[in-house]
Amino acid sequence: MNPSASGWINKFGHLVDKETRIFSDFESLYQELKRNGFVYGVHLDIPSFIEVEHTLSEDEIAKINLLTALYFTFQFEQENPNFTHFVDTVFEYYQSLEVGRISFISKILSGSKTESQLEKLIDSRIYLGGNAFNRAFGNSLTNSLLYVDILIFRIYLQGKIPMMEHAQLLEYVTINIAYHALNAKETNEKDAKLIQLLASSLTYVNLDDAKFDGTYLDLLSQKFSKIEKDYFMDMACLTIWEDKSLDYTESDYIFGLGKDLGKTENEVQSELNFVKKFFENNKEKIAYLNDKNLAVQFYEGMSKNVSKLILRNSKRLKKELMESRELLALLSKSTVKDLSAEEKKKVQNQLLDIFKSIPSLAIFMLPGGAVLLPIFIKLIPKLLPSAFDDNRVEED
């Protein structure tokens, strides 16, 4: 399955239809989403029943986990769930929230099929702004409060309380808890980055209008579900995880919050241990924890995205390269020794001609796109056969 190509939602439906009930209840789904990083706003892994051919990028992992969470939430709340009904329901849900807007041109390109339009809509929920150029080079941030979408979707399916009002309430309490947890500790640059990510992900609450005066604690007496309280607790633990040992003020805050949420001290300590272990094991993979300078981050983001494009077009590239014997010989030579200036110019011109025939590699045609050619040459030995359409569903 390829979440960056059209048809991936249909492919997801085909895969999930083969499975028996993967999660026994909403709690087991929540724990899986925590292990994958989705609850914490970082996107590291996907459920094992999803088959992928290539290494997934952060935004692709986020898309798969968002759809997985929505699907199983729907399954828990509906009798005899049908995938077509699920797609229609999720599309209507996002439209009713007025947060997943599809541009006019996207509607034209995606056609009238609900699945195709939902793909565009989910894409709009994953990214925090950023134009197409920034996305192509891996410079857009992913929404770090995506799990709130799942909590609101449950409310939507149950239809018991006003959905938009509860959405605002969830975000308001979440950002307040993160803010006060941050103020309970000695902050550093990484903490500041985390709170900025959370603030930039707000959808239903205007940060300028939010009050950080402690009055949010009065709201905890309202009827939040257990899973919502678990989420609040995890967001507080996320904010103070880095210390590894709690000082007096942090301990007062986190265990006091746990008491307000109806948690025992053992339950709070268990959540702290989980989040500490998670981030200690994955700190190298989490973007906002990296201290790399902007140039290094840009190059790495660029390399990852170029690698993804090349590997996913490997079949067509191999065909084009095989038809250009001189180019193939020069590329092979470049892997073992430096090319002359004339040879490099030949390689550049012939590669650009090939990229013209493969639309998804259009970034090489942009001004300055030639600087990406060394990355391409480096990846030539790694080209592997792949299916033309990653999302094709074989008919029985």
Rank of each mutant, 00 (worst) to 15 (best):
E51C: 06
F278T: 01
I126P: 00
D260C: 04
E92L: 13
I195Y: 07
T264V: 03
K285G: 05
V306A: 07
F83Y: 15
S307R: 11
I122C: 00
S357F: 05
P3I: 14
I377T: 12
K345T: 14
S116D: 05
F26I: 07
L220C: 08
S303K: 14
Q78W: 08
A132Y: 14
L194E: 06
Q196G: 08
R312C: 07
N183H: 15
L289N: 03
V148L: 09
L321W: 11
F376K: 07
S48F: 09
A184N: 08
T335R: 04
H14Q: 13
S303W: 02
V99Q: 14
I240K: 02
T55H: 06
L379W: 01
T84K: 11
I240E: 06
S140W: 00
K113W: 00
D230I: 03
Y299V: 10
I175C: 01
K244Y: 08
L66Q: 09
H43C: 07
L257M: 08
E394K: 04
Y94A: 01
D123L: 08
D260H: 12
N293P: 14
Y288Q: 07
R392W: 10
K211R: 08
K113M: 07
Y216A: 02
Q297V: 06
P359G: 10
S140L: 07
V52W: 10
F298D: 14
F137Q: 03
T73G: 07
A210H: 09
V268R: 00
K292G: 03
P385V: 03
K113Q: 11
P359L: 06
G138I: 05
F232Q: 00
L170Y: 01
H85D: 14
D234N: 12
P162Y: 03
E323S: 14
V393W: 13
T174W: 01
L146K: 04
K378T: 08
N2D: 12
T142N: 08
K382C: 10
A341R: 14
A199I: 13
D59I: 05
N305G: 07
L157G: 00
D17F: 03
H180E: 12
T187A: 09
N282G: 01
M164P: 04
I46A: 01
E326H: 04
F364N: 10
Q78K: 12
S112Q: 04
K263W: 04
R312Y: 14
F153K: 00
E250Y: 13
I122K: 00
E58K: 15
R392T: 11
V275K: 00
R135Y: 04
L327D: 11
F72M: 10
I195S: 02
N305T: 14
V87T: 02
G214D: 04
F255T: 01
E343F: 13
K356H: 13
P3S: 05
V393C: 07
Y94S: 02
R325M: 06
T84L: 03
F91P: 13
T68E: 10
I227A: 05
K226T: 11
P359D: 10
I227M: 11
V393D: 15
D17V: 09
D149S: 10
R21Y: 02
V275D: 00
C237Y: 01
Q75D: 09
A178F: 12
K63P: 05
M163H: 06
N266F: 11
D260F: 12
Y156W: 08
L44C: 11
I358D: 07
L182R: 14
